[in-house]
Simulated scan of single mutants.
Amino acid sequence: MSQKVYRLKELMDVVGLRRSAIADRLAAGDFPNPIQLGPRAKGWLVDEVDKWLAERMVARDGKAAAVKAAAASKAATDQAAA
Rank of each mutant, 00 (worst) to 15 (best):
R40I: 03
A80K: 15
S20T: 14
D47M: 10
G38A: 14
A54H: 09
R7F: 06
V15I: 12
G16C: 00
A75V: 06
V5L: 14
A59Q: 15
M1E: 06
L11A: 00
W44G: 06
V5C: 09
A75T: 07
D24Y: 08
D30A: 14
S20L: 04
A66K: 14
S73G: 15
A54C: 02
M1D: 10
T77V: 10
A23L: 14
A64P: 05
R56T: 08
R40V: 02
P32F: 05
W44S: 07
M1S: 11
A80D: 13
G38H: 04
W52I: 03
D13I: 01
A66S: 15
L26V: 03
S73M: 13
V46T: 13
L45G: 04
A23P: 01
A59M: 13
A76E: 15
L17P: 00
A70H: 08
G38Y: 00
G29D: 03
Q3F: 04
S20F: 03
K42P: 00
R18V: 11
A80L: 15
V58W: 07
R60T: 15
R18D: 14
R25V: 01
Q3S: 11
A72Q: 10
R18H: 12
L8V: 06
P34Q: 04
M1A: 11
A75N: 11
A21Y: 02
A41G: 02
D30K: 12
G43T: 11
A21D: 10
D30I: 02
D13G: 10
R25G: 00
W52M: 08
G62R: 09
